[in-house]
């Protein structure tokens, strides 16, 4: 009796949860799924049914150049973000509640201001004779053009995307049982060795999650490269925007969008498989060292 009642209440809870999700689901369906399908469909239907949009996409050298550049920039930004975020997240996982809250606050701060505002702030910071330029020249790195260059775009994108790397990393690191490190010490591993052989492998799921999120967000970036970069470093988002906004070529833009979607999906699948492999045997990370 009691068990049935519990199961019933469980089911009704699930029903009410579904009902609660309905508005969000409807929004996603109408404002995301439908446009994506409509845009994709157009890319196969115009100017005539078939794959002509895709053929011309791959035949066009400019699109290929920009696509490759986008992937390279995304990889670069992911790498820089990881290098910056890893020690930061590590520090967060080590510190007490007060310091941790402060560090978390600092990471989340950018989330509370608009992307546009931050990008315009970067324009001010990166301008010639601006703060960053002065700082760089004081350490002997003067003369690096920041506005309208890949360096500037990478700096700004890294700042914007940093939280997306720090949070998954922290989330993983804080769950790592630190007694494992003590165990490694007790068996004679140096602090560094214990970190590399025990901690780093255990943090890999966080690394994978952070890298995927940052990479996927990077390939779709548009505002930052548009405002801070120059057309000579334009990314695929800008090409899509030109096709839609200026040329009204919805089908061509749809084809590029589908391509990006495919790249993202493949990446997520690969990362998912990789993470499952790592999670399946969490102690196998350092096995190839010797």
């Amino acid at each position: 009796m009691a068990a049935t009642a519990r199961r019933l209440s469980g089911r009704s809870r699930r029903t009410s949860a579904l009902l609660l999700m309905l508005p969000a689901l409807a929004v996603v369906l109408v404002f995301f799924v439908y446009p994506v399908i409509a845009l994709s469909a157009r890319s196969f239907l115009e100017p005539e049914p078939g794959v002509s949009q895709y053929v011309s996409l791959f035949a066009d050298g400019t699109t290929r150049t920009i696509l490759v550049r986008t992937l390279v920039v995304a990889a670069l930004v992911t790498a820089v973000t990881l290098v910056l975020a890893y020690p930061y997240a590590y520090l967060m996982s080590l510190s007490g509640p007060g310091v941790r809250a402060l560090l978390l606050f600092l990471v989340l701060l950018p989330f509370w201001s608009s992307l546009m505002a931050r990008t315009f702030a970067w324009i001010v910071l990166l301008q010639p004779r601006g703060i960053v330029a002065t700082l760089l020249s004081s350490i002997g790195l003067g003369g690096v053009p920041l506005l309208g260059s890949q360096v500037g775009v990478t700096i700004a994108m890294t700042q914007v995307l940093l939280p997306f790397m720090v949070l998954p990393l922290f989330n993983t690191m804080v769950r790592i049982d630190r007694r494992l490190l003590s165990a490694a010490h007790s068996m004679g591993a140096s602090k560094f060795r214990a970190l590399v052989r025990v901690f780093v492998p255990l943090s890999m799921p966080g690394v994978a999650a952070g890298c995927v999120i940052v990479f996927v967000l990077s390939i779709g970036f548009w505002v930052t490269p548009r405002l801070i970069g120059s057309p000579q470093q334009s990314l695929i988002g800008q090409l899509i925007e030109t096709k839609v906004g200026t040329l009204l070529d919805f089908a061509g833009a749809g084809a590029i969008s589908v391509l990006l979607l495919v790249i993202t999906a493949v990446l997520l699948l690969v990362a998912g498989a990789g993470a499952r492999l790592l999670l399946g045997s969490p102690d196998s990370g350092g096995r190839n060292d010797e």
């Binding site: 109408v30 995301f32 446009p35 994506v36 409509a38 548009w222 899509i240 925007e241």
Partner: peptide, 23 residues
């Protein structure tokens, strides 16, 4: 001021299609 508009209205593809289905 095309460009200004574009800058502010990102993701115009989606927005435009939405305008089509939500009249």
């Amino acid at each position: 001021e095309h460009q200004v508009r574009k800058t502010v209205f990102a993701a115009s593809a989606v927005a435009a299609l939405l305008a089509g289905c939500s009249t």
